[in-house]
Design a protein around this nucleic acid. Sequence first.
DNA 1: GTAAGTTTCAAACGGTTGTTCGAACAATAA
DNA 2: TTATTGTTCGAACAACCGTTTGAAACTTAC
Lengths: 213, 213
Amino acid sequence: MEVNRSDTATRILEVSELLFVEHGFEATSLRMITQQAEVNLAAVNYHFGSKDALFESVFMRRFTPLISACLAELDALEAKGAGDSIERVVMTFIRPCLALSRDPARGGALFVRLLSRALVENHRLLREALSREYSEFVERYTQAFRRALPELGEQDLSWRMHFAFGLMFNAFAGNDVLKIFRKSPVVTARDPEAIVQHLVPFVLAGLTMPASD
Amino acid sequence: MEVNRSDTATRILEVSELLFVEHGFEATSLRMITQQAEVNLAAVNYHFGSKDALFESVFMRRFTPLISACLAELDALEAKGAGDSIERVVMTFIRPCLALSRDPARGGALFVRLLSRALVENHRLLREALSREYSEFVERYTQAFRRALPELGEQDLSWRMHFAFGLMFNAFAGNDVLKIFRKSPVVTARDPEAIVQHLVPFVLAGLTMPASD
DNA sequence: GTAAGTTTCAAACGGTTGTTCGAACAATAA
DNA sequence: TTATTGTTCGAACAACCGTTTGAAACTTAC
């Protein structure tokens, strides 16, 4: 039956998202997942086929809409002829991330951490899928950045995009490298709006400084 | 005998460093390590006690000297009265990282990736050890940044340090989030000097922009 | 009602995990 | 030399892994 199927499957998806973020893919066993989701052990293989396929489902469920939202914002910006404002281009990426972080079910916020983890872990299950299906994302943003920062050479442009996206991904993922060294985090507030309020000027300062080459 | 012991133990350490970076802690089995290091399976438990303890040894072997080197540079800078130059303060962190990245045995460069992985994975084996023994690191740099950027409020200062260190850690770890989306990396050169050349101005731009609060 | 199709369930599969053990070996010291 | 200590080795341990299976339970359609 459709309702039950969906019920079990999405319960698995949600618990998996939580556990994958908390312990990582390898350290999360199907038994941990199915116990916490209160479903039978065999349910994962029945509904998703394998643990690997489950991970892809968990990931893509959030990732595809996020990428689409960013590109849609970029489309809209360029349509109204405001594509040469670097701040606005940056915001087309920030806003969908912000929306995810605000997800009332908290699943979205979790996912940003999963995304960041998957990227630095260079996950074997995602390497092909990402470069195959989402190279458009990078191409589009490279174009957009080039247009909004016309005074930069290709070298400068590459480096600054590299730093800017790394910074933004990590900021939303809440990867506070300093927090880990001491008991109380440097920044107590995890409020996504507060992040953006400080993150955007920082990123823009780096992006708009005078060209080096 | 001392030579043999060290030989086996350090061979384990070096292979582990490589495999932990490549596959992660959980996905690296003792059998993979001992096979590649050409030592007996039981050698790990004999020399290190457990897989967990091995990880701590692998990590601390590089981490402790790195932190010490940074603090020594900071000491030297303040001793010669140049502590109010934010660029020089930043460089006291950059230079030891750079030295690690240039390690001819390549172990150092690998470690920076391991460090970054461990930080975003928030490794259970490191959480306590780091905040227990290395809070001095954060304290010292917070002081140094506060002195070099006196016009900033505490809020601004926290955020900017948060962004700056996240950026620097990721840059040295070579976590190119854009690279993953397409076949050829945005930045082909992995040359540490080239990284620094572009990284430092970017970080300084964010750190020195006008205060927001 | 019966039949067909879908989903759940307990149990087991073969394989791998980290760890332990005691014997074998090597090296040092008396 | 013998005794002692530190190290290596193969074999085994119990526990856990992802996956499969076939029967039970349930839902839907006729």
